[in-house]
């Protein structure tokens, strides 16, 4: 059979032609086949997963817990898990182009990688097994990296987590947002 190196070469060229989501960064994600062997699965999904594997779900849930404020200093803010951030993102990403979903899963593989953790923030543990401070340091390193592709990866994670969290009515009052107003009644018979 054709060598797996050939297929890897093809994949690599294909990814190099694309941006992130699709991107060159994600080539690395595909080169880390054993990364989930040590993943710590935290909370269980509330509903059947549509895109992510349980390990991938666990990685995004761990990322979301640091991105949104629920694990922070103010206990009034609900945790990401309480608002099912990872479940909402799984459902959303399942409706995107299959390539986008594939890239998202590769990105999560990369996040979990202790290899990249060492490279970016000196933290060799899988993301799901790192301390909160280590996780923040890794996200912060991606956020301000000189490598544009790492900044792109950070933005993908941040936007998905924030979108799932801050679109939840449970946080409206905490933001100082009273919510949508009452819509005036239209005359009967209005189409």
């Amino acid at each position: 059979m054709p060598g797996s190196d050939d297929r890897a070469g093809f994949d690599r060229r294909r990814f190099l032609k694309r941006g992130l989501f699709g991107g060159t960064l994600l080539v690395l994600g595909g080169a880390l086949p054993f990364v989930f062997r040590t993943t710590r699965r935290g909370s269980r999904p509330r509903r059947p997963l549509r895109l992510l594997s349980p390990d991938e779900y666990a990685v995004f849930a761990a990322v979301a817990a640091r991105i949104v404020p629920g694990d922070g200093a103010d206990a009034r803010w609900p945790r990401a898990e309480a608002l099912d951030c990872a479940g909402k993102v799984d459902a959303l990403m399942a409706t995107t182009h299959p390539d986008v979903g594939h890239d998202f899963r590769r990105l999560l593989r990369l996040v979990e990688s202790g290899f990249l953790g060492t490279f970016t923030a000196g933290s060799p543990r899988p993301f799901t097994r790192a301390t909160a401070a280590e996780q923040d340091a890794r996200l912060g390193a991606w956020r301000r990296s000189r490598l544009a592709i790492l900044r792109s990866g950070y933005q993908a994670l941040k936007r998905l987590a924030d979108a799932a969290y801050y679109s939840s009515p449970e946080i409206y009052a905490l933001c100082g947002y009273p919510g949508p107003p009452v819509v005036p009644e239209l005359p009967a018979g209005t189409p």
Binding site: R66, V68, P69, D74, R159, D162, Y165
Partner: peptide, 18 residues
């Protein structure tokens, strides 16, 4: 500046962002 669109635009994460 509805919450989600604003949160996506605001920089940082965690308590800083909050």
């Amino acid at each position: 500046v509805h919450p989600m669109l604003a949160a996506l635009a605001f920089p940082g994460f965690g308590d800083t962002h909050r």
